[in-house]
Amino acid sequence: MELITSILAIALRAGTSLVYATIGETYTERAGILNLGLEGIMLMGAVCSFATAYYTGSIVLAILVALAVGAAMAAIHAFLTITMRANQVVSGLSITLFGSGFASFLGQRLGPESNNHRLVGLVGPRLKPENLPWLSDIPVLGALFEQDILTYALYVLIPLAWFYLYKTRNGLNLRAIGEDPQTADAMGVDVFKAKFLYTIAGGALVALGGAQLSLSYTPGWSENITGGRGWIVIALVIFSMWNPARAIWGALLFGGINAIQFRLQASGTTIPAGFLNMLPYLTTILVLVAMTFWESLSKRIGAPAALGNAYMREEK
């Protein structure tokens, strides 16, 4: 019991950044835009929010900065792929390459002089878990209520994101854009504006996922703090079949792997750490293979039909 509770608690903490990014990317992909720049956006969100928190002491401001940075980077992707019709894969890759380079630059430059201008090794304000009275005493599920505010916010965000997508007019329009932009256009939806909007909003959420890492999960800045999470999220969007409500399962799966890794390492297992650390990446591949296999059995997994295509109004 004790063990399950603690694994669940760690899994949630580890999975929180993944949920933010998964929901963000789900919205972006629902608008027909594939953004492979997540890794770079998460890194930028992590470094900028940590620097902000370090200098101002304000976590709120740090989160706002992360949202703004994510939005700005996604706006570059939106401009390149929507306005300039650049290849979405290559544009996303460039966002990641630029983001990781720039985040590394900032990490070596934004720090105080006493630390040789570096951010690495600094201790800044961090989010602390707050146990909710009563709820955190529930056996096992109490783990859900000994988290920090960014995880609690998910309990609101997930249903909201689901509701917006499936139960509102705007959500219907968004799904139409991803399926068939021509028809959506004919329905009177401003396709270009919507694509921009959801790409930018998605990027903001992705950067928030990065901020959760440097403010809460692994507080502080270290090079490559994301460790490929941005890429894992792309697989998680497929795993959740582009439904924000299911984002939590993938995050729990990967968060759970992290938690089990910790547990095994702490228990002094004979399995080398290197192999344990491979688990998230191998699992991602397995998830992808399983989902593709599932789809090949003609089970529709719900990929937006127009995902990845540049939309041109004149093309008939």
């Binding site: 650049a86 460039s94 380079g101 630059f105």
Partner: peptide
């Protein structure tokens, strides 16, 4: 100069943005 070595990475990362925007002019 005491500037981060990641400078080179920033320069490299920046090149692709105008490249992608410019490919429009090669295709259209």
């Amino acid at each position: 100069m005491g500037l981060p070595a990641a400078m080179g990475l920033v320069l490299q990362g920046m090149i692709l943005f105008p490249m992608l925007a410019g490919s429009l002019f090669a295709e259209y």
